[in-house]
Structure formats: C-alpha cells, structure tokens
Write a protein that binds this DNA or RNA. Structure first.
Length: 467
RNA sequence: GUAGAUAUAGCUCAGCUGGUUAGAGCGUCGGAUUGUGAUUCCGAAGGUCGUGGGUUCGAGCCCCAUUAUUUACCCCA
C-alpha cells in the first residue's frame, strides 16, 4: 500500500503554537470588551437541525450550508429511507431523508433558536456574546475560509437605540486596542435604503437596488448604472439615485441633506412627519455624543451601505480597515423579528460580529501583533547526563511549585543542542547545574536575549525567574 | 456555479528556443567547540519535477487529459 500525502479540506487551516497564541490575544481583547459592556457568554452546538438553518440565509445561503449525512444505510432494501421514487424525484426530495443536521452557518440564528427555546428562563433585555467557529461551503479566497470564527454580541428584547450606540463603542474600542486605528465604522439604516427605493417610484425590486448600491465603491458609478439598467430601472431613476447618493459633509449634514431630498421626492413620512431611518441615525449619533465618544472621525454615515442579509430592518453596520485590502472585518445590524421564524414574533434584536480570521490577517499584514506571547515556557533546565537529569528533577518541581513554567530537556544531548532548542522555542532562560556549580552549591542562569550568565544561589534563581 | 493563474528538496523559489549527472537561499542533521543558543566556518542528507497519456533521437520545459492549490466574479466575516 502506498503512503498517501496528508492534507486538510479546502478552506480549513491548522494553527501552530505561535498562531494560536496570537489568535488568543485577539479573542482576549474582544472578550474583555464584550464583558465590560455587560454581555454574557453563550455556546451552542456545532450542529443544528437543518430545519433550524434552512430558509434563514436566502437561497444562496442554503447552498452554502454544510450538511451532515445521517448514519445508517439508507439505500438498504428493507426499511430504506430513500425510495426509488425519491431518487427519481431528484436531490431536493432525497436530501431531507439522508441529512437532517448541518454545521452552523453563523451565530445569530442559533442564538435566536436558543432565545425561543429558553424564553421562560431568560431575563430581558438579554445580552449575550458568542465566540465559536462557523462553516460555509464557499469557494475559499483571500480573507475567506470555509471554517472561521465569529465573535458575536447581540441584545434581544429592547428597541433602545442605546444598543446601536454601544455597538459603535465596542467596535471602536476593540479596533483601537488592537492597534487598527486606520478604520472606518460605516453605519446606515435599512429605512434610508427603503426611502431611496420609494424616491425612485417603485421600479424594479428593492433587493436589486440595494445590492447594486452596495457595490458602488467597488464597481463605480458606471458599473452600478449598467447593473440597474439591466434590472429594469429607467435612466431617469438612476440619475435621480446618484443625486441622492451624492450627499456630502459631516454625519449631521448628510442627514439634513437627505431629509430635504426625500421631502422633495415626496417620499412618505411617519405620522410625526419624520423619516424614521434618518431620525434613528440622528439619535444614535446624539447618544454617542452624550456618552463622550471621541472617535467621530472614524464613524461614517454611508448611505450606500446595504449588506446582503435580508433580515436587517433598522441600523446596519460594517467595518472597513482602510490600509489593508480585505473584506469587512465586522458587520451587523438590527432585525425587528429575529425570533419570528421560531414562533416568537415581535422580539427585536440588534447585534454584530467580528471575523477573527480577517482581523488576524490585517494585524499580520500591518505588523501589529505585540512581541512575546509566543512561548509559555519561561525556563529550560539543561542537563549534562542522565545522572544530572535525575538531580534536576526536584529543582524542576520546585520551579513549577513557585509558578515558573519550566521544562527539563528530556534526552541526553549536548548543551549546544539544548540551547538551540531553547532559542528556537523562544524560552527566555536556561538554567544548569553541572559539576562546577554543584561543588559551589550554586546554579548558572543564562538569559538568552542578552547572553548574560550569572552564578546564583537557589533563592536568587527563584527571584530572577519569578520577578 | 463562471473565468484566469500556479504545481520542481521540509519551506520560498531559479531552471535560457527541448540537449550530459535538475540548482540556490532558508531549514534539518553532523563537525570546527565532549560546559553554551542567536552570529562565523566546513560538510552531509534530502527530488517518481502533482498524476496519467502523447509528440520527439531526447521532455522539468511542447500538446492533451486529470487532480490539487490559488486569485477574481457571485455572496459574505
């Protein structure tokens, strides 16, 4: 039998020790911010029933679900789960009979399911964060993986715009703590997009309009124009749209300009004469100001921001790192009827998600990972021979009892090899006690970064390693 | 699903219009140094050139197929 080359599935990765340490650093920053804002941790199963997942992400999303094959021989003649007629009818008919579970596609839908299942025991408003991997059967490419981590924070059970404001605060704090200062937090409102659609007089479909608008910064005005004309919008409407989108200036100025533009286009208002989308965006900005938010230069009202997920109904968010060519590292928004699909209507939720894998790629490209964090071992005990190793074992124990991460080189090897090992692993100290030191009842401690060696008594060694 | 690119040592890559025994850097291992890493010097191991077929006196190089990887579109974190 020939030896096969090992491999891992497309779009998945191994994470070596150094990478895990740096990923944990990112997780730690995000977790601390979430907890500081009062969010509690939640974990849900890797697998959900397909009935929970399907139909929540649109037709494309359903195709990107990883399905888990049922156990058992479903083609067995007796008690066959799949009949000849099923096979005749095609995969649509066969699939539900051979797969009833799937890997989670995001963290929001499992969260909604959890809320509905536990509604009796939860205290509302319920704030939860969740840091777990999700899977998508996508074509991998730059910044896109088939298995990746999301870090979600969501609130359900309140309409308060304070939640939206706090999302901006959390986004800003995480990015600044990580050193990703060249970022833009983009915010828009689904009802603003809706108003655009109304201002154009009801041609085409909302979805076509929104997905086209969303691409503006990517394919430019010409590209968007071409796409809209193909989708049945008139040239006059497209011209009108770009007039509306051309608003300039500060957050407040853009709101003001759109207010007048919508009125001029006779877009219907709420009973109180306002446009809800614009009004809510204004309130969020006001709340941030009252809180003392200081990074308004990184917050942008972007009327072209659309985002694909169809369930957003209020504010929508997205983060772009400006000095790295990478898709968005975070996104989110409000959904008025999050739990409706599971039989609990009228519960509003708002939340957002960080993509750790993309954040990692950004930090690496910009060289923003702090030094250190690499190895856990602080001190390597080097030995001269087996007898010496035996004598070092109690020393090893005492170091560990003192809380010093320490290891003894397990094989009989030359000192050079042992030092090389420490160096390669990033271990800062090497401790040894050969015949010379033993005679003097002392130890030799070498700090690899400086190359300095000291002859020390046991207490001094402990001092040096625990300080 | 659509389109392009790539595949040569553990890693990153050279390899001329097709011509002897396929190279470099890094890494690994050994030695210079049987009590000292990162630095220096010397040496060694390591390749069915992704796989299968074809053209040719001769193929890492040309042609066809196939697989894998990767980039872009769609969509998204």
């Amino acid at each position: 039998m020939s030896v096969q080359k090992p491999s891992i599935p497309q779009g998945t990765r191994d994470f070596g020790p150094a990478v895990v340490a740096r990923r944990n650093y990112i997780f730690g920053v995000i977790r601390r911010v979430f907890e500081k804002f009062g969010y509690a941790p939640l974990e849900t199963p890797t697998m959900e029933n397909l009935s929970v997942l399907t139909g929540k992400y649109g037709e494309e999303g359903d195709q990107l679900l990883f399905k888990v094959l049922n156990s058992g021989d479903f083609l067995n003649k007796k008690n066959a789960a799949v009949t000849a007629e099923d096979l005749e009818a095609g995969s649509r008919k066969v699939l539900p009979k051979i797969a009833e579970k799937g890997l989670r596609y995001d963290l929001t839908v499992p969260f909604a399911r959890y809320v509905v299942m536990n509604r009796g025991t939860l205290t509302f408003p319920f704030k939860r964060y969740q840091i777990q991997p999700v899977w998508r059967a996508d074509r991998p490419q730059r910044g896109r993986y088939r298995e990746f981590y999301q870090c979600d924070a969501d609130v359900v059970g309140t309409d308060s715009l304070l939640c939206e404001a706090e999302i901006v605060l959390m986004m800003s704090e995480v990015l600044n703590t990580l050193g990703l200062t060249e970022h833009t937090i983009k915010i828009n409102h689904r009802r603003v997009l809706g108003a655009f659609y109304q201002a154009l007089g009801g041609e085409g479909t909302e979805v076509d309009l929104f997905t086209a608008i969303d691409k503006l910064d990517k394919i430019g005005q010409d590209g968007v124009t071409r796409e809209l004309l193909e989708r049945g919008f008139s040239e006059a409407s497209v011209a009108r749209l770009f007039e509306l989108l051309s608003v300039q200036g500060s957050f407040a100025e853009k709101l003001q300009q759109l207010q007048s533009a919508f009125a001029a286009a006779q877009v219907p208002t709420e009973a109180d004469g306002s446009y809800k989308g614009l009004q809510e965006l204004g309130r969020v900005q006001q709340l941030l100001q009252d809180f003392g938010f200081t990074h308004f230069d990184h917050l942008e009202f972007d009327p072209t921001l659309a985002r694909g997920l169809s369930y957003y109904t209020g504010c929508i968010f997205e983060i772009k790192i400006n000095n790295v060519n990478m898709g968005s590292v975070s996104g989110g928004g409000r959904y008025d009827n999050l739990t409706g699909a599971f039989g609990l209507p009228g519960v509003s939720g708002v939340g957002f998600s960080f993509g750790v894998d993309r954040l990692y790629d950004c930090l690496e490209e910009l060289n923003l990972f702090p030094e250190a964090v690499a190895t856990t071992t602080r001190c390597l005990l080097a030995s001269f021979d087996l007898e010496n190793s035996r004598q070092l074992l109690p020393i090893l124990r005492q170091l560990r009892e003192a809380g010093v991460a320490a290891e003894l080189y397990p094989d009989e090897a030359k000192l050079g090899k042992q030092f090389k090992y420490a160096d390669a692993k990033g271990i800062p100290y090497v401790l040894l006690q050969g015949p010379e030191e033993q005679a003097a009842s002392q130890f030799k401690l070498k700090e690899l970064s400086t190359g300095q060696e000291q002859l020390l008594g046991w207490n001094a060694v402990l001092d040096a390693l625990t300080k």
